[in-house]
Nucleic acid binder design. Sequence first.
DNA 1: ATTATGGATACTGTATACAATCTCTTGGCT
DNA 2: AGCCAAGAGATTGTATACAGTATCCATAAT
Lengths: 229, 229
Amino acid sequence: MLEPISPSPPALASRPVGKEHSPLRDKVAGEIRAAIQAGVFKPGDRLVEDRLAEQFGVSRNPVREAIRTLASEALIEVTARRGAVVASLSPQEAEELLEVRATLEGANARLAARRRDPKTIDQLKEILARGSSAIEAKRVDELAALNDAFHTHLAQAGCNRVLVDLMKTLRDRSGPLFRGIGLEFATESWAEHASILRAVIAGDAELASLLAYRHVLNAGTRRPPEEAG
Amino acid sequence: MLEPISPSPPALASRPVGKEHSPLRDKVAGEIRAAIQAGVFKPGDRLVEDRLAEQFGVSRNPVREAIRTLASEALIEVTARRGAVVASLSPQEAEELLEVRATLEGANARLAARRRDPKTIDQLKEILARGSSAIEAKRVDELAALNDAFHTHLAQAGCNRVLVDLMKTLRDRSGPLFRGIGLEFATESWAEHASILRAVIAGDAELASLLAYRHVLNAGTRRPPEEAG
DNA sequence: ATTATGGATACTGTATACAATCTCTTGGCT
DNA sequence: AGCCAAGAGATTGTATACAGTATCCATAAT
């Protein structure tokens, strides 16, 4: 998670002839994002450029560019000449965020139900099944990834790229709210996923929209206001 | 628009002791943003770091950071090792973008109607009146700014900061679609603003939402698919 | 003519250096 | 003891340098 980023995955012999390697700023941004999602970097933690640069084995420049990107995603908060800290969600902000997410998830579910793309629906069924198994077997740790997969594929089913990108950003941003969720919560949440998918398959756009909207708000209310900013 | 950015507005004698000056990256980002909105930089135009740095009288570093920010806002498109170009909106993308904008404007109008903040409503009335005058006097050039002001204040009336920021970003992003609008279009659009505000004042949340939603979509359909990407 | 090939040029990616500013501590004063 | 000031250290802001790629054009071969 916090190890140096080799200039390129040293695949075979030596391949400094970068061909399909992404810029360091992207790798760094990805690492920091992952660290925030995983809770390695907690809300309020300072992100010191020198420190990050050293940890990743790069210069400060890619780090600074990564910071700008993450700031635009509201995952971190940057104050001029004072540096960046991991964003905190005040109860107020959390509520606002969930309201917007709910609205967009609702709009997307409506689109998905109108479209009913068989391929994507099959993938959603598959994910749903895997989630159910995980819950039955009480493998809670897998559920965060499966939840993300479900929402990602549902977004794809809506087939609106602007919406896909926005929902992903908002989902990442609201991530800290849902870390370390219990089995009980996960079960309810997963049942809601099933209902949403049923409505989508049935082509019931308004029901799908309403269920998706409430799914997000429900998730918020199940979780008491915490993580003050 | 494209003149050098002095390290700080050279107010009095010399004030290198920066106190309330913003970083160059922000000024540069602002300048580029403005240039895109104003049509000085057109969709597809390349943004060469060296060139920008020289034009603004700064080094490439602030320019690069500004580019990351603008890329996150989807105002420009960056390809690794190939640089940045001003974003183009394909008809498909434009439609998707307007659908999302309409959804969010609708959600926001609903919130605004529930809240009915007197102060903000007064400001909206004022803006509406000024726009009407401008239309009567056929001062079309003022309308872009007034339109933005109306939507900005309507967003404030909704009182959801997440929504405010998102809608602003999407509005900027859809800006190129509405450049150089005719008086006829502006008149229709402004009449819709009046209806929305009436619904908000009446506290009719569902009507306000519907009108705001349609207002955005109407604006899109009045304008034939153009600006291919 | 068309397509390859080579190299020159332009541009982006990354690192390093220095300046400006902030933060925190130390010392002195009341 | 408590508070203000000065200075040292830490950190961000900006500029510059160089390396790695991409792009373009001239030239040559088919």
